[in-house]
Amino acid sequence: MASLDAEPDGAAPTYQVRDLSRVYGDGPAAVHALRGVDIDVPEGELIVVLGASGSGKSTFLNIIGGLDRATAGTVRFRGQDLHDASDAALTRYRRDHVGFVFQFYNLMPSLTARENVALVTEIARNPMDPAEALELVGLGPRIDHFPAQLSGGEQQRVAIARAIAKRPDVMMCDEPTGALDSKTGVRVLEALQNVNRELGATTFLITHNVSVGWMADRVIEFADGAVRENRVNANPVPASELSW
């Protein structure tokens, strides 16, 4: 596969995952993080991924996010295989299509909020203005603050602004509320839901928190490296109505 410059194709799934497995180490010490996962993910859905620690949900996200490679099986993004992509192609895939949000924000402490966002828009093909992205997550007034001057929730919202500013096709959010209190967490989830609705980016949201599943279009639950449940939520609730 030369490039991953894929365009959406009507009803075809964004991701087509077949018999995906990931083994860490070998011999008796081998850990089977994923054991034959099969999933189709349609365009534009907000998917909440649930599961206990070690269930394989993060490994799954890392592989479809282009951070890790499967041991066996295929992942097709808009029909193109990620498994055989070169390292440079994966870098381009992450740069052009994927927005990441992490539990621990991972902002550059030496850059202001605006600069953290601009860092990504500079290398994106069709980015929004960093100020606009920060406005979307409600951080307009704190645009020139450094991470050390922002609260945890604010830092996470900068991270979301950074992820959405490139108008990604896919958002990967690994425990985005894990380090936040419930009120702040809800605000972050609201921001994510807004972005999903407004940009139409397929959004994966990994969490331990079962009640977050109420806001999802689809809930996928992992257990022991396999998908235990894959159910569609016909009536997702607004994030603002969640509490835990």
Partner: peptide, 9 residues
């Protein structure tokens, strides 16, 4: 590592 994840070479 974050930069690598964000798509920097």
């Amino acid at each position: 590592a974050s930069l690598r994840v964000l798509g920097f070479s």
